[in-house]
Design a binder for these strands. Sequence first.
DNA 1: GCCGTTTTCGGCCCGACTGTTTTCAGTCG
Length: 580
Amino acid sequence: MVLSNREIADIFDVVGDILQIKGEIIHRILAYRNAADSIRELPRDLRAYAADGELDSIPGVGKIIAEKIQEMLDTGKLDFYEKLATEVPPGVVDILHINGVGPKKAKMFWQDAGLVTVEMLETAAREGKIRDMAGMGTKSEAKILEGIESYKRRKSDTRTPLGVALPAAEHILNHLLELPEALFGSVAGSIRRARPTIGDVDLLVASSTPIPIMERFTTMSEVARVLGHGDKKSSVELLNGLQVDLRVIPPERWGTALNYFTGSQAHNIRMRTLALEGGLSLNEHAFTRTDDNTEILCATEEQVYAQLSLQYIPPEIREDWGEVETAAQSKLPKLIELSDIHSDLHMHTLWSDGTATIRDMAQAARARGRDFIVITDHSRGATIANGLSIERLLAQREEIRTADAEMQPFRVFHGTEMEIKADGELDFPDEILVELDFVVASLHVSLRQPREQITARLLNAIRNPHVDLIGHPRGQLIPDREPADLDMDAVFDAARQSGIALEINSSPSRLDLEAQYARRAIELGIPICIDTDAHAIEELDQMRYGVLTARRGWAQAANIINTWSLAQFEAWVRPRGGHA
DNA sequence: GCCGTTTTCGGCCCGACTGTTTTCAGTCG
């Protein structure tokens, strides 16, 4: 059993936690956490880097951590970690993850009071036994009990999908912007960077009079509890468990603040380092000249980047994945925008498991500015999704051709989302596929097969000359289902050879391919298709999330099939397997 | 523990908020 990237990253995070409780210097701890973050975002397996001798080319991975990764790949475990784990009880690491408890208190509860599980800490707190410990009091006792409640909710819960967090954030922001004191505002943090899942919501509002804005924020009807309440910053937990932080910013300092609170942290550190090289220190308030301490205020983010002689860097790519260096050379790509999208090549109707008719979906897509669509209902093997038999597939074609004829110049094409069956066979024979305008092939079943087996299934679909697109290639479901254990290097190689496209599925519960894979596919010249996979009319609006994900993958319009005109699309799809 | 086009040593972001302090430590982002 070879450990996955994620499993190795998780071990490094626990190593960081244990070292922190032991009182190790913070920078050594951060080194492990940085490496963990970096590993989680890799577009390739660690074993592929190891095979190429390139482990220490991974950002944040040096000689020592590279050796530790190699040990885990070879043996499935890490001696260093197992030794550390005997020094600090595992429950103390859990206690560290309680809001309001840091390494100092976790260590004190453990060593001074023998509290080594969250449950023991909770009991002691309820019995009034921790309020007399050093630096503690009744308020910190209450705060820790609240932190334990929140910890229990989080344990059962997971990170919040972008598709939940972004609308919630915009709703609250608009509520605050109704106040005359609020000049303008923005969602910030990981939502603005469009990460697939987010931990908490960061909002910024520009104003010179923060008090009424904070007042409205902390008294909103959806607030469950106020975690903090100040002039510049307040935090609340909503009834749905989401934590929201609001900062009120003087408008003349908006640019540095929005930049700072959008992150990512790694991007910020890169920016600050660059500023220092030019004799400027940068924080959320301003640039400060290090020689005479005079401030340079930036009212816009454009000014922040211009001050550092950088191209403006869109928030979606602020991950320290090379964007600062590229911006310094003025070589950032012009990222795709929603308005570039002309088609939607993957959607469902009442014929399988959708909730609308072909005509309704087509009209709704046209109303959203699309020029053409492909109807791709499920194939016969997807029985639970009411998949189409060959007979029904052929009957559906009549209805699609009628809608197509009626709606011209808008076009409605006939496709399928075909099952890649558990044994690797495709669900329709070639003589049926050749009748279709467009073929999407997707994995839905037996996603937990061993790597070789499931990779071979996908490669078989990629190599079929009638398949045009692989739908949601990795098979993840956000936030709960891990992706399939695919050899993505092999997938990309095969896709490049056969000339097919890979999908960015826009559904907030998929966002698959994720950005780092999309970026690698684009670098390899593989066309990408952003689809909604809509099962209902309103899901056609989810294209927004797919475009954000593509932007995170540094995609330009030309990389994305559904920015192409009808003529370009037909020129690409026709030679592929001789579609009609 | 990582990193480097001023560096292989000496940095590594730092301000806001809270609660317990009597001038500051811990935590968080």
